[in-house]
Design a binder for these strands. Structure first.
Lengths: 192, 192
DNA sequence: GTATCAACAGACCGACAGTCGGTTTGTCAA
DNA sequence: TTGACAAACCGACTGTCGGTCTGTTGATAC
């Protein structure tokens, strides 16, 4: 039971890789299953064997993107003991990671639409929102009963900045400006 | 040339009204043109005579919602001279207006997906973002070169709070809590 | 050898958005 | 009054797309 499973895994990963490219270039709605099938040179049956539907394929793509971004964030936070300092570093890393068009299109634009706001935020809950909340709670300057809401506002604000940067023509300078502005927003939101 | 035009207007408005109901209940994707046709007792040709496509119908619906919300906001701001005070009042009015399920579903959930983030924000630019920016500029406590970005973050934060409230079970108490939290966020973001 | 099951193949289906060649009907000039 | 005109409307039809279903293949377990 090894050759078979390996082959299946390979097909699955190949589909995710191909779909990532198409979703990034043409968006979710603009990418037909047909197109994925043709680009991946895989049959309909194979795709539906591995994924129950188009949205599941998208979710799989999203998962790999989350992993990559999460790893970048973890690297940025490495060794920072102060929760607020770590939070700041993670936010800046997040803004920087939107240089990747996959992140912009898949994570920021299509994900909330495809999964629905609720499921999207639940994913975020595990990956990022939860960490923000933990940092805020550890630090303690935000009253405990407001931590949840503040974390949401903070995340939404950072996403907004990221999207704003994403559509800028001069991306490099936009990132620099955004990092400064994000720092400013953080200072204000987290002032004692 | 009056009976004809009136009749056309009536058909158009009827379609928008019916579509508003269906979009609110079933969402954009969950509402087929067929369903609108049946519910409105209007023929396919008539609908496509008035709207070039499904998204145009949605945009027309969105427009009426914007008008309603905008009117509520204007009423809340009436007579307030201080720009920051007016901004605060408008934000609270906005959060309160999400009690209307149309606002939640059409404006907050479906609109960015259907129109795309960019067109959505362009609409907002005219209706709300522009006013936030004007208020911030008039007040002056945010440096001029950061006003744009701050306005975005503020709007995104308020939308996030609104969505958070929207999915709460106990809506009434959620609104109360959200108003307090929104005030807090505003205080921090706009501290001197 | 043969039973089994994951992996894959591809014909087929229903739903849906959008099109197109008409028909109806109010308006207005002659 | 009438006939030209155009807006409003009609509904059959089309192409596309996501998803299903009935197989077939080939590696593995016994």
């Amino acid at each position: 039971m090894n050759k078979k499973i390996d082959r299946g895994q390979a097909t699955r990963e190949h589909l995710v890789a191909v779909a990532t490219g198409l979703f990034t270039e043409y968006g979710y709605d603009g990418t037909s299953i047909e197109a994925v099938l043709k680009a991946a040179e895989v049959s309909r049956g194979a795709l539906y064997h591995h994924f129950p539907g188009k949205d599941a394929l998208f979710a799989a793509v999203l998962d790999t993107v989350y992993d990559r971004v999460g790893a970048e964030g973890a690297r940025a936070v490495e060794g920072l003991a102060d929760p607020i300092e770590a939070l700041r570093a993670a936010c800046l890393a997040w803004i920087r990671s939107t240089r990747d068009p996959v992140v912009r299109r898949v994570m920021l634009i299509d994900a909330p639409a495809v999964l629905g706001w609720q499921r999207w935020r639940e994913l975020d809950e595990v990956r990022t929102l939860g960490r923000i909340k933990a940092a805020l709670r550890r630090d303690g300057r935000i009253p405990a009963e407001r931590v949840d809401l503040f974390a949401h506002v903070l995340l939404a604000g950072m996403n907004e900045i990221a999207l704003l940067v994403a559509r800028a023509e001069d991306h490099a300078s936009a990132v620099a400006e955004a990092e400064a502005a994000a720092g400013d927003v953080l200072d204000r939101l987290l002032s004692k």
